[in-house]
């Protein structure tokens, strides 16, 4: 790896829809996937990220720049993450979790996963099936039995079917 002292190194990332992004190496190596490429000396030219589209990559880079500008202060980092995710819709969150997984960024993964879980709270089984495209593989009898099993724990959980 050709480390030049003084001048910050910039990397060029390419999304799967051929958009190019410049990002400071210090921010980009939050991704373990990118860091490994840099360390292996494969980051000379353009780094192709085959599993991330341009829209999502732009968002991830905003996050990389934002979080790496914050000094080691977990409180501030957390509030940055909360703010960063606050305006993302459910679909974007899905893209983000896949991108964070591909880029191997555990802090972003956890933040996005927690945010998705937060959206899911108080949602009905029907909502979850619809949104996640999950097929109900229970027979009606099995489903009724599973519902019955933990009925006593549901007190206070109000689900919101319309949402």
């Amino acid at each position: 790896m050709a480390a030049e002292t003084g001048t910050p190194t910039t990397l060029t990332l390419k999304s799967n829809d051929d958009e190019l992004f410049s990002v400071a190496e210090s921010a980009a190596i939050l991704s373990v996937t990118i860091r490994n490429m840099v360390e292996d000396g494969c980051a000379g030219g353009v780094i192709p990220l085959d599993n991330v589209d341009g829209k999502t990559l732009a968002s991830v880079i905003t996050y990389m720049n934002g979080i790496s500008a914050i000094p080691a202060d977990e409180e501030k980092k957390k509030s940055y993450r909360d703010k960063f995710l606050s305006d993302k819709d459910f679909e974007t969150l899905a893209d983000m979790v896949l991108a964070a997984n591909y880029l191997n960024m555990s802090c972003l993964m956890d933040a996005v996963s927690a945010k998705i879980a937060q959206v899911m709270e108080k949602k009905s089984v029907g909502w979850v099936r619809r949104k996640f495209g999950i097929e109900n593989d229970y027979t009606p009898e099995e489903e009724a039995a599973v519902k019955e099993e933990h009925k006593w724990t549901f007190e206070g959980v109000e689900t919101d079917d319309d949402n």
Partner: peptide, 18 residues
């Protein structure tokens, strides 16, 4: 990983999803 962030109570109520 996503589901592991759910409060246990919410998760139990979603067990009948699949």
């Amino acid at each position: 990983r996503v589901l592991s962030f759910l409060p246990l109570k919410t998760f139990l109520s979603l067990r009948s999803t699949c």
